[in-house]
Design a protein around this nucleic acid. Sequence first.
RNA 1: CGGGGUAUAGCGCAGUCCGGUUAGCGCACCUGCUUUGGGAGCAGGGGGUCGUAAGUUCGAAUCUUACUACCCCGACCA
Length: 490
Amino acid sequence: MAKDFTSRKENYSQWYNELVIRADLAENSAVRGCMVIKPYGYAIWEKMQANLDKMFKDTGHQNAYFPLFIPKSFFNREAAHVEGFAKECAVVTHYRLKNSEDGKDIVVDEDAKLEEELIVRPTSETIIWDTYKDWIQSYRDLPLLINQWANVVRWEMRTRLFLRTAEFLWQEGHTAHATREEAIEETEKILNIYADFAEKWMAIPVLRGLKSPNERFAGAVETYCIEALMQDGKALQAGTSHFLGQNFAKAFDVKFLSKENKLEYVWATSWGVSTRLIGALIMAHSDDNGLVLPPKLAPIQVVIVPIYRKTEQLEEITKKVLPVKEALEKRGISVKYDDRDTHKPGWKFSEYEFKGVPVRLAIGPRDLENGTIEVARRDTLEKEILNMTDIDLKVANLLDSIQAKLYQKALAFRDEKTFKVDHWEDFKKQLEEGGFVLAHWDGTEDTEQKIKEETKATIRTIPIDGKQEDGKCVYSGKPSKQRVVFARAY
RNA sequence: CGGGGUAUAGCGCAGUCCGGUUAGCGCACCUGCUUUGGGAGCAGGGGGUCGUAAGUUCGAAUCUUACUACCCCGACCA
């Protein structure tokens, strides 16, 4: 087996980076902090996109598109919002270039200075609410349920492929409602869509809960999140859904006339997931042989590799393979028949293992004689020789069981790495080792901040369905009603 | 922005301390033959302004200075 790249256990970050490169998902671009998503990586994103998009549309949302540039003044309108994003904005100040005096270079034309700078969107609340102002007059215009697929820019100091890049792809939903209750219901509905997607499609178990005030989205009243645990014991925020109250409605003056003919501010939500989900997918399941993809999101679900010496043998194999490919495709399974003669079978085996293809079928002269085929599953690397009869059914069942097993494995891992801790020394020690640490917290920002300074851990989430129990804050000893989840995070 | 490091072929590196033929190795690439059930072997071949600029020198990848870019550790990270 080819293991000429860093092991998970030696250096998790390096393993992750090499894996992304070797699986041909993405690479660093020449532009600082930005990433090139390669066709195979993008194919995974497209699958995620298609499924999420359907889930949004099934719940009454529509897609639209808003500008990349936001006038600087829009940012000033919501105080918390501008404060939250000000430090990481790319700013457009000019609109023209010219030849330098010596003609050897292109320089910014100082005469082409914009009267008002434009911010490259780090998120679109401001431009969207400025637009909604004109779209909403009456309760009949509500609810307004809109999503956009877009790219955003956040000028991060330090970046990591998929997990944190200066530019990233995402979807952001922005909705307007007549009542507070309806907006909260929407926020929770979306959170559940995200959680379902993570668990049923990505095979990653997630915690659903609220963010503490410290970690709340800039401008939100309440931030809901789904939180996943990676194989190195660090947490990853996989999606957020915000109840914005009337903050943006007030900042952008978005009012409607109610049935009772009263002028009221609308209630808002916003929510998003990004290409970071691909990072989560990689870190949750992969091993030292490469990527492991859940069948439901794998661009190639089954690969067929022929083993042959002469071209006549290949022809015979192809005759056997094509009906199998067709039968699998009829079941909605994506199949690649790799009959390239430029690479040997062993090379192909390794290649598809790196790429995380869930099931590999290999067929050679021996199988032709016996009417068999070799079936290998990526998650366990087990191989078995099966009779060709009903092979499409067998493979379809195998894909289902791989999907289920990946989730179970990730869930078992998370349970094993979740700890209840009551004493400060144990708390520090456990965070050092990783995992979700359930502890009591006195509810103050001050305590949260001090814990962060001393342990590098943050409150990942306050579980929605968390058990109520009396306890004492692990840091301050003050009373607490519920355990919250601490972890070091990406 | 602080602290450390690196820059030599598409990728990964050696050579730099102590200047001296035509700058070398692995992978990848091209050609041919043999191979093909877990990353094939042999033979031949192509590819380099040694990050940029200036300086020292008979002579610079190697020494000096400045600059630039990238990486790691912090800070930052809704």
